[in-house]
């Protein structure tokens, strides 16, 4: 297991109270696994991803633990966590287009960043150049300012930089949403290539585009209103989902490839609960057609079949015997 997340609960502190954006997340990612993370806008995908690398105020760790390669990550201790960032956990941010300091040449910025982390930049250059070749970037980008690069080029620079130290876990948060379709595919394939070459051990890919996940993800984790709903191999999620929310989500896609966020799940009445004061129990309850009394308690995330986790009392067979 490369990543193990246990009962991770993270709130946003606001003046009006806590926004309970991530509640009791428990899951793991195997070595070499590419896990897709999907769910409606605002369901807590970025919160989960950020918790693993940059948990800063107003985010607050309420409880839970994260282990990477067996080692506990000090996710709520910014100082200690910075030793793990980049080298062990890394990220390709959503805003990759603006992620580079505008007043430094790309190469110089990399040198200063690596230098500050005690890595010998000069020794890294040959590998860096190999990777630039891999993403089809000229070595000249190192001598350029970000403003001289196109959006796609900046994104590839960020991809190369983020993975330069071969992290165990790489998080890619909506890195394709701003790109056109053909570039999306290329970027997605690069991510797979990075995994295959061992630049990164495992990956969390967040996207609004299930077709991308279908193309590259080994498993998919579905979230709803801050809670995990279901995790299973990609094929299973698409063809045989078991959680009522996943079923509706997949059914609402006329074909794989529709961006679900842009269509407010028309078939499902109601909208997700506000996370400032969410209902107890299963948060999908109010929109779930098969809900029953038991659903007033939060369902556990249980492995029903090997590799297939579901958080739903119905699927646990509770309605029959309880």
């Amino acid at each position: 297991m490369s990543l193990q997340v246990d009962n991770l609960t993270v709130y946003y502190q606001t003046l009006r109270g806590d926004v309970q954006a991530l509640e009791g997340a428990t899951f793991s990612i195997a070595d070499g696994e590419i896990m897709g993370l999907a769910g409606e806008s605002g369901c807590g995908k970025s919160t989960l991803a950020n918790s693993l690398i940059r948990l800063v105020p107003p985010m607050r760790l309420v409880r839970g633990q994260v282990r990477l390669d067996g080692e506990v990550l000090p996710i709520d201790d910014a100082r200690r966590m910075s030793d793990y960032r980049f080298s062990r956990v890394s990220v390709i941010p959503q805003y990759a287009m603006n992620a580079l300091n505008p007043t430094r040449k790309v190469g110089k910025m990399m040198a200063e960043l690596l230098g500050s982390k005690g890595v010998d930049f000069a020794a890294t250059i040959p590998e860096l150049k190999r990777r630039l070749d891999l993403v089809e970037l000229s070595h000249d980008v190192l001598k350029m300012y970000p403003i001289e690069l196109s959006g796609g080029m900046k994104q590839r620079v960020v991809m190369v930089l983020s993975t330069l130290l071969n992290p165990s876990l790489l998080i890619a948060d909506e890195i394709t949403s701003a790109l056109d379709v053909s570039t999306q595919k290329a970027v997605a394939e690069m991510l797979v290539g990075f995994r295959d070459r061992g630049f990164v051990k495992s990956l969390i890919v967040i996207t609004h585009d299930i077709s991308i996940l279908y193309q590259i993800a080994d498993t998919i984790l579905i979230m709803y209103a801050g809670q995990l709903a279901e995790k299973a191999p990609t094929d299973v999620i698409i063809r045989a989902p078991r959680h009522p929310y996943t079923k509706l989500l997949i059914a609402s896609l006329p074909e794989v490839g529709v961006r679900y966020a842009e269509r407010r799940l028309s078939g499902i009445p109601g909208r997700p609960p506000l996370l400032l004061d969410p209902p107890a129990g299963c948060r999908f309850r109010e929109r779930c057609s098969v809900a029953f009394e038991k659903c007033l308690e939060a369902p556990p995330f249980v492995e029903l079949e090997p590799g297939h986790f579901v958080a739903c009392w119905k699927e646990l067979g509770e309605d029959v015997d309880g």
Binding site: R54, F86, V91, P93, A99, P102, L113, S116, S162
Partner: peptide
């Protein structure tokens, strides 16, 4: 954004 990215890559505060 560029500051947040540096932070996510564990750059020291000084940088």
């Amino acid at each position: 954004d560029y500051s947040h990215y540096l932070e996510a890559l564990g750059a020291p505060r000084g940088l």
